[in-house]
Design a protein around this nucleic acid. Structure first.
Length: 341
DNA sequence: AATTCGGGGGG
DNA sequence: CCCCCAGAATT
């Protein structure tokens, strides 16, 4: 039976009620939701699942309990805590955010969407999330959960992520976000998307919005949101160097732009294998798949180094574990370090 | 408007 | 194998 559309007020009341009885209340960042804790959690959660983030969040808070502690930390220390989480610009920006807030905001944490947007690494979604979760004030959010829920509930056609569809989604978010109980409302949106209105096998029978859901009522739940056209990703090759001396390994700190920015890594050269000298022999290889390309990597054993660059440094093998290393590089070291065999 | 940023969860 | 994940910055 098709019902008339829900007014924003009715939508808010039903969602908040659902959140209080069926939503998540035990996530680490929900306990003591200070602006700093909310900021850290929201940055970590960008394009990253809750279960993956939790141990990183706990370790981060143990090492950097306050924004002042984070502002005082070195970039290497920060990158080490982010290693394995991916999208490393988030870590660099989070450190910049701490410096920005402590030094340029007089230690006063921004508390409105407009000023939150000035924080490095904070975009429209994260600004709304901080307003909602940290300050319990009006802060519209549109993330993957909201896109999916809204596309189904409102029957929105078109691929989310395109300008036109996103404009519609954000307009709906601004219209349907209340001016009170924002913490519960925003959490309700995310929890509904994560536990009921899931990408696959959504549990529509348990959904309190089923009577007004356009997708359900028109039997299009499995067709909305409109899927993105898939792309074939290219394969790139990469040549890395294994330079070992006196029980130490030569590593290189990568530039802060590009892949694995600001992480320590085996030195990478931009030559073809055929161009390598006679005294260079293959140490091993690995493959790795990124979002937009596949990496087919070879690691070459080199006896001596021509000239050591400023961004290169020797590390004992056991000290490498403390560094922020790219995941496939870390795995390669684990397999090839002298005493690990 | 498209591309570039990781790595893993789960079907 | 596939799509997706509490997106932002850059081109």
């Amino acid at each position: 039976m098709m019902h008339p559309p829900l007014t924003p007020t009715d939508f808010q009341q039903r969602l908040i009620s659902w959140q209080q009885t069926h939503g998540r209340h035990d996530l680490p960042w929900q306990q003591d939701p200070t602006p700093y804790r909310v900021l850290v959690s929201e940055i970590m959660l960008q394009q990253t699942q809750v279960a993956t983030v939790i141990p990183y969040f706990e370790r981060w808070m143990a090492s950097f309990p306050t924004i002042e502690a984070l502002a005082a930390a070195s970039e290497d220390e920060v990158m080490s805590h982010w290693q394995g989480l991916g999208y490393y610009s988030r870590a660099r920006n989070l450190r910049k955010a701490a410096l920005y807030i402590t030094e340029e905001c007089g230690g006063q944490f921004p508390d409105q969407v407009e000023t939150l947007l000035k924080i490095p690494g904070v975009g429209r979604y994260t600004a709304g999330a901080i307003a909602s979760f940290a300050y319990n004030t009006y802060g519209p959010i549109v993330d993957g959960n909201v896109k999916r829920l809204f596309c189904r509930f409102f029957g929105i056609e078109g691929v989310p992520g395109t300008t036109q569809v996103d404009k519609t989604l954000w307009h709906l978010a601004e219209t349907y976000t209340p001016n009170q109980s924002n913490r519960a409302f925003a959490q309700g949106l995310l929890d509904m998307g994560a536990t009921v209105c899931k990408p696959k096998n959504p549990t529509c029978d348990d959904c309190s919005f089923q009577p007004e859901c356009i997708a359900y009522q028109s039997n299009r739940v499995d067709q909305l949101p409109t899927p993105k056209p898939k792309k074939t990703i290219p394969t790139r090759t990469g040549q890395f160097l294994w330079i070992e001396s006196n029980g130490k390994l030569l590593l290189e700190k990568r530039a802060d732009n590009g892949i694995w920015g600001a992480l320590w890594c085996l030195p990478q050269i931009h030559l073809e294998p055929e161009q390598l000298g006679e005294h260079v022999q293959l140490k091993g290889s690995f493959k790795h798949t990124f979002t937009h390309y596949k990496l087919d990597a070879k690691v070459w054993h080199v006896d001596r180094l021509g000239e050591q660059a400023d961004n290169q440094q020797w590390f004992p093998f056991d000290a490498c574990a403390e560094l922020g290393l790219p995941t496939p590089i870390r795995k390669f070291l684990t397999r090839n370090a002298p005493q690990s065999a």
